[in-house]
Amino acid sequence: MNPATVIRTLVIIGIVGGLELACRTGALPHTVIIAPSAMVASIIETLSSGELNGDMRQTFGAVAVAATLAICGGFVLGFLIHMSPRLRRAIDPLLGAYYAIPHVAFYPVLIVIFGLGAGPLIVLATMLGIVAMIIATLGGLDRVPRVLLRTAKVHGLSPSQELFLVRLPAATPHLLSGVKLAFSYSFIGVVAGEFILSTAGVGHAIAFSYDNFDNYRMYGLILFIIGFVVVVNTTILFWERRMVARRGTR
């Protein structure tokens, strides 16, 4: 195994072990943080009790819908914008500034328009994720090497053959990064929305536990959410790495 991986694993074990020790000996009070082992126990307890099944369904359902809308919609919009240089120039400043605006400032506005519930969360999360996918799609299509398009012309490909046989395969690595970002943003949108504004969902359950000084459940849920996102992202990253290994960085 590569030495960096060994050291990283040791560092993580050290942090987790140190935290465990500090909590067990009372150096860190349980009103601030609980031991990692207790967090894991809390996850198991909460999941097996089934108490939060409804919240889980809302959160993961909303993320699934929002991420799908963001990825598919962002791809289609990105493609259309790529086709029209004029539209591209027009909305370029908008795309550049989009993620600079703190999206949370608009949560209250959306609540006023759409009310509470899963609907506004999905709108919010889709809006947050879709632009990342648009930008990735544009980046991927822009960077298709010109020589590959010339090769397509030499082979007499039709516009749709050129798109599906050359442009899209060439843009795949960028599209995959877009998928990863759009998913992360959708997740952040749903959880942040639930955390601040909603009356249901895992994000709300965390905020609710905080308000009721229920650190045991709260830290279990926090670890659960973070663990879930890390697992999904690592899976996509692994996939990306495999593609890079096969295709090179072109």
Binding site: V147, L148, T151, A170, R247, G248, R250
Partner: peptide, 11 residues
């Protein structure tokens, strides 16, 4: 036609 740049499809 054979081009100067690498025109092989990496995928």
């Amino acid at each position: 036609v054979v081009f100067q740049e690498d025109a092989s499809f990496p995928w």
